[in-house]
Design a protein around this nucleic acid. Sequence first.
DNA 1: TCTTTATATGAACTATAATTCATATAAATA
DNA 2: TATTTATATGAATTATAGTTCATATAAAGA
Lengths: 99, 99
Amino acid sequence: MTVDEDQARFLRCIGEPTRLQILKLVAEGDRYVGELAEILNKEQSLISHHLRVLKECNIVKDKQEAQKVYYRIMDDRLAKLITEIEALMIELSLCKCQQ
Amino acid sequence: MTVDEDQARFLRCIGEPTRLQILKLVAEGDRYVGELAEILNKEQSLISHHLRVLKECNIVKDKQEAQKVYYRIMDDRLAKLITEIEALMIELSLCKCQQ
DNA sequence: TCTTTATATGAACTATAATTCATATAAATA
DNA sequence: TATTTATATGAATTATAGTTCATATAAAGA
């Protein structure tokens, strides 16, 4: 496993629209699975699958409270990074990924 | 097309090991297709396909000189971003993607 | 103009990832 | 302990993306 492969995997991990939405939500504060599913209007199992991907990449962590499982972003610097990427994309008019 | 979809697409665009390697090379200076293929030990057509993906996302630009086509990164801030992502990943011990 | 060199392209194939559905697990409560 | 609530999981399906191969295009030089 090279550094480039690792970095690419990380980028693909956050490079999925639903996961990106999840990340932006759990960057603001703890959210439980059902809450995320409702907000994003997606099936619970789908959200669960995406959360597993994020967790396996150490991008989020979870904490069980009663029946609910709360997720949060692993580190605020990740949230900051995502914000910076978005800002740069806008600044550079990137990836209206034409057509 | 939402912002999240756009951002996710951009992240997937750079989230492929060979494209990431290409980006790091063309961040240092202009490179022509055959050169990239040789350095990365990949087929010319494969590199060409990847370059097209990067170009369609406005991440690289090209310039023809005689028969050769030179590629470079669209903006130095993109190179800087990639460096920062790598640095943060190392700092956070992210994505040894422990399966 | 014929040949060589460099790159791009499209189709076919292969691999990877996302989604759905049914169901399992497990905690809380009646 | 039977039921409800919340989440996770695995298999099957579908969608997306990467790779290869053959070939097209186009510039340069013999």
